[in-house]
Write a protein that binds this DNA or RNA. Structure first.
Lengths: 257, 257
DNA sequence: AAGTGGTCTAGACCACCGC
DNA sequence: CGGTGGTCTAGACCACTTG
């Protein structure tokens, strides 16, 4: 019922066919409210009854109707203010949850065979194309390639802050990718992700085996712990055959009886 | 390169500088637990104390500690099972919330002046490059261009199902874009968004004023209401100067005193 | 079977903010 | 000021699932 990426991250309601799952009160209420919004019984901008009124209507405690409403607020469908009450929000954006899994999983989940190859690892790299990020910290610069069924899938170009992650210096990245190693080993408190399209430069075209200037899909990610940069990575995919898909279902699909 | 959509998650409290905001019990507890996870007091894979134990430790009711934990579960940092207890999740993905606002807002929020121009609107278009979607429903096919400070910003290529949205047939789209009109007028129950990079075709290069085959960032979106397709849209941006940014802050930044 | 998380209640009190 | 949503409690009962 929540937003999910297609790749993994199972929706928490795995439905058994022919099994009517018990629906909790707050789920029933949330679904009912969702329907009233969709069918414009409560049109955009209109006010809803108070919590107490709804609690009485649905025959539950106030806390239960609150729980249903909270989720709708999180989805951006309702707006609440203390004295003003609850209104149906005017939509001015599409929101969904983006999930970018470990590359290996991404590949294997698609049914392909995963391959990995370390291209280079050396100390003392400079921040890729920006400056000031790592404030003179000792850096490890790693380049590696992820393969799907033997074909280049993703080029990973990464800087690791050895002041924060000293273990990285002695870690052997010829078998495990820094992508996977870091995600599991190193904690972080803040992540900034950038998605963009670019024309392939020489390095990208060579390793991804595509024509120069052909489009690549780039995911850049900065990871911080407290106020220190942990790592900065650029992941480039050949545009052909790569996309990110997110799906959002506001309303649960009822089982065909 | 100013265009972007930003969204953060996990730190929904806008802080006033120099104003120590009252922190609720569940916020304090959530922050404390976040710190223990970040600092590996509770390392990945380890088990946490039971709810009752934590409630006692923090001096609150069980429901309050539950509320804090629920948010951490939503963020994918904790995993809970009934008899097994609560464990720190092994991270195998980066999640964040992606927000794609109405184009006009996206442009004006970046400080630029918004412009709009309708290119074509005609009945009876066919599904863009796929088939079977609209099942023979009457369609309206609209092309339009969004401008930022007079420069082409986004090409919008859209099909609208007139069986679901009959008002669209008589709506004048020369002043308001279908993007904006639909989002505010028409309810939907399910959205599927695809992000990808492509090489510009003739139409894209002409309207976006970029060289053919140069990279474009494409956002495709299918919107359904119940089981009917409402609209299918392809939004193409010149890759240079367009990106999508998401930021996730697990831990609130404490105010400098 | 027992222990854990999950739901729900009934009520108290608080804090914000529109009237 | 008063009404609304927001927080918190203490406790009951349920349902899952693992040891």
């Amino acid at each position: 019922m929540h937003n999910m990426s297609i790749h993994n991250r199972g929706c928490q309601s795995p439905r058994q066919p022919n099994v009517r799952q018990r629906m909790h009160a707050y789920e029933k209420i949330r679904t009912e409210m969702l329907q009233r919004i969709s069918q414009q019984v409560w049109p955009a901008g209109s006010s809803l009854p108070h919590e107490e009124q709804l609690a009485e209507e649905f025959g539950v405690a106030r806390g239960t109707v609150r729980r249903a409403m909270e989720q709708l607020v999180d989805q951006g469908l309702l707006e609440r203010k203390r004295k003003a009450g609850t209104k149906v929000a005017a939509r001015n954006a599409h929101s969904s949850t983006l999930t970018i899994p470990v590359v290996r999983r991404e590949v294997t989940d698609s049914g392909a065979e995963y391959g990995y190859s370390l291209l280079s690892a050396r100390k003392g790299g400079r921040p890729l194309d920006r400056s000031g990020y790592f404030a003179g910290a000792p850096l490890l610069h790693i380049c590696c390639l992820h393969l799907s069924d033997g074909r280049p899938y993703q080029l990973e170009d990464r800087l690791i802050n050895l002041a924060v992650v000293p273990e990285a210096e002695v870690q052997d990245f010829s078998e495990i990718s820094p992508n996977e190693w870091l995600l599991q080993k190193v904690p972080y408190s803040s992540v900034c992700t950038t998605l963009k399209a670019e024309a392939a430069d020489a390095k990208q075209s060579r390793h991804l085996q595509i024509a120069q200037h052909s489009p690549v899909f780039v995911i850049e990610r900065q990871t911080r712990l407290d106020k220190q940069q942990v790592t900065l990575v650029r992941m480039s995919h050949p545009a052909a055959g790569f996309s990110i898909i997110t799906q959002t279902n506001w309303i649960d699909i009822p089982d065909p009886e």
